Amino acid sequence: NITNLCPFDEVFNATRFASVYAWNRKRISNCVADYSVLYNLAPFFTFKCYGVSPTKLNDLCFTNVYADSFVIRGDEVRQIAPGQTGNIADYNYKLPDDFTGCVIAWNSNKLDSKVSGNYNYLYRLFRKSNLKPFERDISTEIYQAGNKPCNGVAGFNCYFPLRSYSFRPTYGVGHQPYRVVVLSFELLHAPATVCGPKKST
């Protein structure tokens, strides 16, 4: 009989979030998941669920729940959905087409922007091929755009693959930082360890 609440607040209220290319994953298990708490945590810009209804979450049980978190800019949030393409979905964080879970995003301009520009958040701009779903690539190998090998040196047709967002508070919403948490629900042929409040007794 599990009584402890799932530590969603640790994920959502973390002081620092990860850069999207090096997104963070927390496995959540053996706890009571009260998803209604999430609705009250922040004024969400996005709370979209796929393959599951957000209002039914509190009635369900899962084997595992994974919470992935990272920062992107406002106009990239739409890429965090099944079947999307674009720089983020292709080279940084890719959801599977049959994704079961929820994408939660909110504006973090007050936390993640600086007047002089916050350069701490990076994204991958160049990659030889698209990522597979939930693949994480943290390599910093020089990207070869031409025929000549780069031998690890940046220059003509040889690019450092990561680029930094420079978040400034005066930017338009599309270029402001957004914190994203992706909850993916895993149903294996194994005992369910993460249940809503109704199912945990």
Rank of each mutant, 00 (worst) to 15 (best):
V115G: 15
P191T: 12
Y165N: 05
L125V: 15
Y165I: 05
L131Q: 02
V32L: 09
Y50A: 01
S200A: 14
W23I: 03
N64D: 10
G86R: 01
N109C: 09
S108R: 01
Y178Q: 05
V20E: 04
I72H: 01
A89S: 07
R127N: 05
F70V: 01
N157H: 10
Y119Q: 15
T3H: 08
R168C: 09
R136K: 11
E141P: 07
Y165F: 04
R73F: 02
Y50T: 02
L38Q: 03
L60R: 08
V103Q: 00
L60P: 07
E76M: 05
R127D: 05
A33D: 04
G117F: 04
F167Y: 05
P54Y: 11
W106I: 04
I2K: 13
T15N: 08
D34I: 06
F47W: 15
R73H: 03
D9F: 09
Y39M: 15
D68R: 02
F156Y: 14
V32Q: 10
D112S: 02
N118Y: 07
Q144F: 02
Y91R: 06
A42R: 13
P7L: 09
N151G: 13
N24Q: 14
A105D: 01
V32G: 06
V37K: 13
L187E: 09
S139W: 01
A154L: 12
G101L: 01
S53V: 07
D59M: 07
L162S: 04
F160L: 11
Y143V: 10
K110F: 07
F134C: 08
V103Y: 00
N58Q: 13
N157M: 11
V115L: 14
W23F: 08
I2F: 13
Y165R: 03
K114V: 11
F47Q: 08
L188G: 15
G146C: 04
F160I: 10
D112W: 00
L188Y: 11
P54D: 09
N92K: 03
N1S: 09
T55V: 11
R168P: 07
D97C: 06
S164D: 08
D9P: 07
N118G: 15
F44G: 15
N87C: 10
I142A: 07
N30M: 03
S69R: 01
K26Y: 06
L5R: 13
N147C: 09
T15R: 10
A192H: 13
F126P: 02
L38H: 03
G152E: 10
N4P: 06
K199G: 15
C31R: 04
S139Q: 07
F47R: 07
A105C: 06
V153D: 10
S29Y: 08
T85Y: 07
R78C: 11
F45G: 15
R25M: 02
I104H: 00
F47N: 02
N147Q: 13
N107F: 03
T55K: 15
E186V: 01
L5K: 14
L162Q: 03
F44I: 13
Q79P: 01
Y171T: 14
C31G: 04
T85P: 05
F17I: 05
C6H: 03
S36E: 09
G101K: 00
N40Y: 08
T85N: 10
T15D: 11
T3L: 07
A81H: 02
A89C: 04
P54K: 15
V32W: 09
W23Q: 04
G196Q: 11
D137L: 01
V37R: 13
R73T: 07
N120W: 07
A192W: 10
I88C: 00
W106F: 06
Q84H: 05
Y119L: 11
T100I: 13
D98E: 09
L38F: 11
T63P: 05
R163T: 09
T100Q: 10
S200P: 13
F12Y: 03
Y66N: 11
S53T: 10
K198T: 13
R25Y: 02
V71E: 05
L162V: 07
G174C: 08
F126C: 12
T201P: 14
F99Q: 00
V52G: 03
K199E: 13
V65M: 15
N24S: 14
L60Q: 11
W106P: 01
H175G: 14
R25W: 03
G146H: 06
V173P: 14
V71W: 01
Y35A: 09
F134L: 07
C61R: 07
P197V: 15
N151M: 11
K128D: 12
V103D: 00
S200N: 13
Y93Q: 01
A192K: 11
F44W: 14
R124K: 04
P169L: 03
N92D: 02
F17C: 02
T193A: 12
V173D: 13
S129T: 13
P7S: 13
K114C: 10
H189L: 09
Q79M: 03
T55P: 08
L187S: 13
P197S: 14
I88Y: 01
E141C: 07
F126T: 11
N24K: 15
V180Y: 01
S166L: 08
T15V: 09
E76D: 08
D90N: 12
Y159T: 13
Y159M: 10
N157R: 10
F126Y: 15
W23K: 02
Y165G: 06
N107W: 05
K132R: 13
V65S: 05
G74I: 01
C6D: 04
H189M: 10
A190N: 12
L95F: 00
P197T: 15
T100R: 11
R163S: 11
S29A: 10
D68E: 02
L57N: 05
L57F: 08
T170H: 14
I80E: 03
D98T: 09
S19Q: 04
N107G: 04
F17E: 04
Y178C: 10
A22Y: 07
T85Q: 10
S129R: 12
R25D: 04
R78M: 10
P96D: 02
A67S: 02
N64F: 09
G51L: 01
F8A: 03
L122Q: 15
S108L: 04
C158S: 04
L57Q: 05
Y121W: 06
G174E: 14
W23D: 04
F156R: 15
Y171N: 15
N147V: 12
N24G: 07
N157K: 12
K198E: 12
C158Y: 01
S200T: 14
V153N: 14
S139L: 03
N118C: 06
T100H: 10
P161I: 02
S116H: 14
P82R: 00
G155V: 05
K128C: 08
G146W: 04
S200F: 12
K26A: 07
A22K: 10
D9T: 09
P161K: 01
E10I: 07
T3N: 08
R16E: 15
F99C: 00
V194R: 10
T3D: 08
K132G: 09
V103P: 00
T3M: 08
F45W: 12
Q144M: 07
P161V: 02
A18I: 01
D34K: 04
V180E: 00
P197M: 15
V11T: 05
C150G: 05
A33H: 06
F99N: 00
V180G: 01
S19E: 04
K94G: 01
G117M: 07
I88A: 04
G83A: 07
S184T: 15
C61H: 09
C6Q: 03
N24I: 03
C31M: 04
P7T: 09
Q84Y: 05
E186M: 00
K148P: 07
L5S: 10
C6G: 04
G101P: 00
G196P: 13
K94S: 06
L162M: 06
Y165L: 04
P96G: 05
Y119C: 12
D137H: 01
W106N: 04
I72V: 13
K110T: 12
Y165V: 05
F99M: 00
G117V: 06
V103K: 00
L187R: 13
I28T: 01
Y50S: 01
A105S: 13
S184N: 12
L38C: 03
K148E: 14
R78Y: 12
N151Q: 12
N40Q: 12
D97H: 09
T193K: 12
A89I: 02
I2T: 13
P43S: 09
N92Y: 03
R16H: 14
D9S: 11
R16V: 13
D68K: 01
V52C: 08
I138V: 14
L111S: 11
V37A: 13
T100L: 13
F62V: 12
V153L: 11
V11F: 06
L162R: 02
V194M: 10
C6V: 03
R127V: 04
G86S: 04
N1L: 06
I80T: 03
A89Q: 02
A89R: 02
Y91N: 08
E141Q: 11
V194L: 10
D75E: 11
R136E: 04
D98R: 07
